[in-house]
Design a protein around this nucleic acid. Sequence first.
DNA 1: CCGAGTCGGGTAAGCGCTATCCATCATGGT
DNA 2: ACCATGATGGATAGCGCTTACCCGACTCGG
Lengths: 350, 350
Amino acid sequence: MTVGGTNGERRAPATLHDVAREAGVSLATASRSLNGSTRKVNEEYRQRVLAAAAKLDYSPNLSAQAVARGTSTTVALLVADIADPYFAQIAAGVVREADHEGLIVTMAATERDSERELELVRSLRGQRPRVMILAASRRADDPAATALAEELRAFEANGGRVAFIGATEAPHRSVALDNAAGAEALARALVQAGYRGFAALTGAEGLRTAEDRLGGFLAGLAASDLTIAPEHIVRPAFTRDGGYDGMRTLVELGIGEIDVVFAANDVMAVGAMSAIRDAGLVPGRDVAIAGFDDIPTARDVTPPLSTVRLPLEEVGRRALRLALDTIGPGDDLPVRAEVVLRASTPTRAR
Amino acid sequence: MTVGGTNGERRAPATLHDVAREAGVSLATASRSLNGSTRKVNEEYRQRVLAAAAKLDYSPNLSAQAVARGTSTTVALLVADIADPYFAQIAAGVVREADHEGLIVTMAATERDSERELELVRSLRGQRPRVMILAASRRADDPAATALAEELRAFEANGGRVAFIGATEAPHRSVALDNAAGAEALARALVQAGYRGFAALTGAEGLRTAEDRLGGFLAGLAASDLTIAPEHIVRPAFTRDGGYDGMRTLVELGIGEIDVVFAANDVMAVGAMSAIRDAGLVPGRDVAIAGFDDIPTARDVTPPLSTVRLPLEEVGRRALRLALDTIGPGDDLPVRAEVVLRASTPTRAR
DNA sequence: CCGAGTCGGGTAAGCGCTATCCATCATGGT
DNA sequence: ACCATGATGGATAGCGCTTACCCGACTCGG
């Protein structure tokens, strides 16, 4: 198709100007026929322009369009850690929906550091994205919180849209995950299944998602006048290794009174299962375990992990729709968190 | 779901012009003192500008900079599926390195469709990214291959950089993963461990990564005059469910002569383990299994999965460095693929 | 004391587009 | 016929920024 440029011949990409000249029309006409415009243009001209564009392998300079139009086609996504399946699934949803809307997503990782998060938001703002989606976990005691709020307020004042995932951040839109209700339902289900001695592996104090889930779980237990002994609530890192370490702590403490361990997310639960096994015990038999999220591997570990399912990809898609106001069917409904009992929490004969 | 915060008056973001006016200097001086320039500017002026920028909460319009400078600060990343841990890890590496270089990464998913891949490359080109990283798996018989090559050639001719991950694509830079050698080493290790009856779960015919891994594995067996019966080479989808289905097929076919199954990647292996278990067998005892990649969950399944470790995050980082010519220590060395034997392939007494 | 250098701020010409305004020309109602 | 009325192509003024380029103010050696 395109000819020339043997090696390293660095010709600049074709511009709209080139296309217009090639087609023998004005810049305006070329612009109108290539990029959506309300104006009609003579079909013959249009064809000529299209042909010229194809011939020159023209591809519109998105930055230039953004500058000229005063609005970009970008959505910025902030997650804590891309490799974590929780965020990876959300990201997959956002990317898919964005693609659907003809938008481009740029991604950044906070690495669970709220200073970094603030800095990233600040720098991402430079892109003038249409939407910013914040999926990175918020913490209640965040020192950078007000600065972040300020930054987001400014962003919105400039016409940007913000959507949070997980936490409901006061003035912004958000896809609320019913962490508390899901955990509560899980707790009830476990009580129902005959469990009485509980322990919890949850994230660092102040981590919203972790707190909500633990709170819900405790509420579910409270409904049956049960609770968790303070020493049986461990707060390691909110990661697989955190789960492993936390479970080790629990095992060392003595596991006699613990029937089941509630891990505040699945990756922790998976780590915990490995810790249980490394301690010479059998998860599901010697001590049951349940997680939260229903990441894909939950069903592939042994025994399959009981958990609370969150439709994470859908959450990602919905966050974008929400921010864009392109609500789809069912988007008004809350995100359903559904208890999924598997073999890691077998029914206990009492 | 909270909606709101859209009511504030919509003032436009501060421009450099505003900052200059506020500081009482010219546009040029403002530009020079805010964004790196070779020109020196009087320290007092500089401070005034900085103060003005802070006061107005100025954030440079990246699109405008890109247009003016003729070069963006973007790197485009193409993967097959973001939620797949293989790609998620690579993406994490790319994002981290990009952040390190002050670049922004935009991400797109091909969903394993090469038509889509072509289209994405085409549209991503509009961003005029500094770098394009293609991690999505290539296939030998790709009908869109020449068009893609053409597109990439044009991109490079315009000064863009391209880096492939996995496949070594003729004229481009690439981080080669030694799929063949790794699989070969794995095969030798398994033979060494006493295995004699082999089966393989690999991707669709023509999928480069899958072919290379299978080829290497067969070569490793051949060294001991062993091979895999054609009916024991199954080619389902290159995903967890593919692994599950493929293993089911194998089980239905009769597993009598199979000691160990080699899955061409870990997610398939994990799916296969579930299939084995669902068939009432015990993976590692009734039939051993090994994968490839060493995704994080490999060590958390039961039994822990034998595999070939690929430093995927490092691969992502290296791909970017490679494209940017900012080679770091050890970047000239090939990526090491290391056999990791775990309990899913116990040593067999013979 | 003068011409040749720096130094450093300002002016303005772009970058590749879009959008506004004009000019032109074919209609059509009366 | 004649003018209001649409259409539709073409200049052109930006969009927010960078970067020659210009030019006045200094510094200095001879």
